[in-house]
C-alpha cells in the first residue's frame, strides 16, 4: 500500500514536470509552423520558454477590482491543469488513473474555464467582463460535449473508472457508430477546448483585447499562459488516449514514442486549422456547438443501446 502511494506520487510529479517542461516546446512548434504557413521565418523554437522566463521575472503588479481574486485565478488555472495531469496517461498508465473516475476529470477541466470567469470578474473592466460572458456562453455548450465523449466511453466500458474509460473504450473493441460519431464531434470542437482560433472568442485580441487577460501582467500572466500551453498538451493526451489508443500498449520506448508522435500530429492539425480560419462570432460558435451537442447526445443514445 505504501509503495503504491509512493509510486503514484512519483508518477504525478513526473507527469506534471513532463507537461510543464514540454508544453512550451509544443507551443514553440506551433508558432514555428504557423510562421511557415504565413511565409515568415518565425520565432526560435525555444521562444515560448524565453517569454515565460521574461514574464516570471517581471514585477508583480496588483491591478483590477479584486487583486486577490486575480492572483487566485492565475494559481487556480495552473493548479487545475496540474491536477488534471495526474489523471491523464502520458504514454504510461495515468498515475492516479485508479483513484478518480471520469466525472472527476470532467469537473477538473471545467474548473479551468471557471478560472477565466474569475479572472474576468477580478479585472472588472468592460472588456474583461465581455470576455467573461463569452467564456460562460462557450462553456455552457462546450463542456457537455467533452463530458458526453467521456460518458460514451464509460457506457461502453460499463464503468466510470478512468483507466477503463481511457484506452479505446469508446470503440468498444470494434468500430461502433457512437464512437466514430464522438470522434468526429471531438475533432470538430477540439480547437475550442484548447482555446485556439477559430474559437478563441473569449480572448479575441482584435475585438475585446484579450478579454479576461487584459488586466494581467508579469508572473500572473505567465501562469495563465503556461496553463494554456499545458492545456493543449493535456487535452491532446486525453484525445489520444480516448480515441487513438492503438499502439500505446507496446513495450516501453516504442509505445511511449508512438504516443508523443500522435500528440505531435494532433498539435500540427490544430496549428493548421488555426492558421487557416477566421474567428467565429460567439453566437455562431454557440449555434455550432449546439449542433454538435445534438449529435453527441444521439451518439450517447446509440451507445446505451450498444452500437
Amino acid at each position: 500500500m505504501v509503495m503504491s502511494w509512493f509510486w503514484a506520487t512519483i508518477g504525478c510529479i513526473f507527469n506534471a514536470a513532463l507537461v510543464l517542461v514540454l508544453a512550451p516546446l509544443f507551443e514553440g512548434i506551433l508558432r514555428k509552423v504557423t510562421a511557415r504557413v504565413q511565409s515568415r521565418k518565425g520565432p526560435p523554437l525555444l521562444q515560448s520558454y524565453y517569454d515565460l522566463f521574461k514574464l516570471l521575472g517581471k514585477e508583480d503588479i496588483e491591478s483590477g477590482e479584486a487583486p486577490w481574486a486575480q492572483r487566485f485565478a492565475a494559481w487556480l488555472s495552473m493548479g487545475v491543469v496540474l491536477a488534471a495531469v495526474c489523471f491523464v496517461p502520458m504514454g504510461f498508465r495515468a498515475p492516479l488513473g485508479g483513484a478518480g473516475d471520469a466525472l472527476v476529470l470532467i469537473y477538473l477541466l471545467m474548473l479551468g474555464g471557471l478560472c477565466t470567469l474569475m479572472a474576468g470578474l477580478a479585472a472588472g473592466s468592460a472588456y474583461s467582463l465581455l470576455g467573461m460572458s463569452r467564456e460562460m456562453m462557450l462553456m455552457i455548450t462546450l463542456e457537455p460535449l467533452f463530458a458526453v465523449a467521456m460518458i460514451v466511453g464509460a457506457v461502453h466500458a460499463n464503468s466510470l473508472r478512468l483507466d477503463a474509460v481511457l484506452g479505446g473504450a469508446v470503440y468498444e473493441g470494434r468500430f461502433g457508430v457512437s464512437g466514430l460519431l464522438m470522434l468526429a464531434v471531438s475533432m470538430a470542437s477540439f480547437q475550442a477546448l484548447v482555446q485556439r482560433v477559430p474559437f478563441d472568442i473569449p480572448e479575441a485580441e482584435t475585438e475585446i483585447m484579450e478579454g479576461p487577460l487584459s488586466e494581467y501582467s508579469g508572473p500572473k500572466l505567465a501562469l495563465f499562459k503556461w496553463a494554456r500551453m499545458a492545456k493543449l498538451v493535456v487535452y491532446a493526451a486525453l484525445f489520444v488516449a480516448l480515441f487513438v489508443p492503438w499502439g500505446s500498449g507496446l513495450p516501453f520506448p516504442v509505445g511511449w514514442v508512438l504516443f508523443w508522435c500522435k500528440m505531435l500530429v494532433l498539435v500540427l492539425v490544430v496549428t493548421l486549422v488555426a492558421a487557416t480560419h477566421a474567428r467565429y462570432r460567439v453566437d455562431q460558435a454557440v449555434r455550432y456547438f449546439g449542433g454538435m451537442l445534438v449529435i453527441a447526445v444521439f451518439a450517447l443514445i446509440l451507445a446505451t443501446y450498444g452500437y
Partner: peptide, 16 residues
C-alpha cells in the same frame, strides 16, 4: 480585414 476577423495567415499573404 482578415486580421480583424482573426485570420492572420491571409493577412500575411496579402502583405506578401
Amino acid at each position: 480585414a482578415c486580421h480583424i476577423v482573426g485570420f492572420d495567415t491571409l493577412f500575411m499573404q496579402a502583405f506578401r
